[in-house]
Design a protein around this nucleic acid. Structure first.
Lengths: 134, 134
DNA sequence: CGGCATCCTAAGGGATACTG
DNA sequence: CAGTATCCCTTAGGATGCCG
């Protein structure tokens, strides 16, 4: 039926406490779009087409799948309005908002260290790839 | 990939600022192992084989690739000891440690809300597929 | 021991067409 | 408008083998 979904997983060895949590975390958020959608919904309820427009690079398929997963995890709520042109609103749940709050330090970190990383990359690439042309 | 698409300046340009950062973030950490390795190195320097043993489910190939990426981004340092059986130590850099600190709220969040999510999932699954088994 | 190179499969995800 | 269903291609990543 569905095939692009990553609903499986969570069968990892339960020994490493921290590792499991991180894996758990990654299984939920480490896809290409989830965090992006959560961040967008952080600034307010949006309907499907708005999300689709705001993200722009996402396909309907992936937006749908992403929203379904987030809804399933209780991070996002889906409200269908029974009107003539269908209207579906998505919003963060309380759980979703708490996640967003927990994510923000990471976002800040990225903003603050972006150039450090870029510099490190250049250094690495230059050091390891001084040839290339000869 | 190409990302310069700037449109919809009507309201908040979450896309132009936060989205890019999140994408950036995801590109760096959203793979299957990076965060796991970082977390492990958070508790001290380890050699290759130790990491390989501690993570266990990872293949050498992926461990190598992950470490290379982290090294490239300046998050992890690699120290080769010129001894007879080769010995290579990996450790977090200052940058890596600051990242780890930024990640911790997320890890805590996961630990604290794990069962909420599990419950939400079960609710969702039960609601949507009451049949399915036979 | 640490780590590239190769091969190969499964999952991720885009494009498109169809529907209520 | 808000999806669902198909097709298809690209990628992540596991398994294996070789080498300093």
């Amino acid at each position: 039926m569905e095939d692009g979904t990553s609903l499986s997983g969570t069968h990892i060895d339960v020994r490493a406490t921290n590792s499991c949590e991180i894996r758990d975390l990654l299984d939920r958020l480490a896809d290409k779009w989830s965090l992006l959608v959560i961040e967008l919904l952080g600034s307010g309820t949006r309907r499907f087409s708005e999300l689709n427009r705001d993200i722009e690079e996402i396909s309907q398929r992936m937006l749908t799948l992403t929203l379904r997963n987030l809804e399933r995890d209780g991070l996002v709520s889906r409200t269908v309005h029974p009107v003539v042109p269908p209207r579906v609103d998505y919003a963060l749940t309380a759980l979703g908002e708490s996640l967003l709050a927990a994510v923000h330090p990471l976002v800040s970190w990225t903003r603050e260290h972006r150039d450090e990383i870029a510099a490190a990359r250049e250094r690495y690439d230059t050091r390891r790839e001084p040839e290339g042309e000869r």
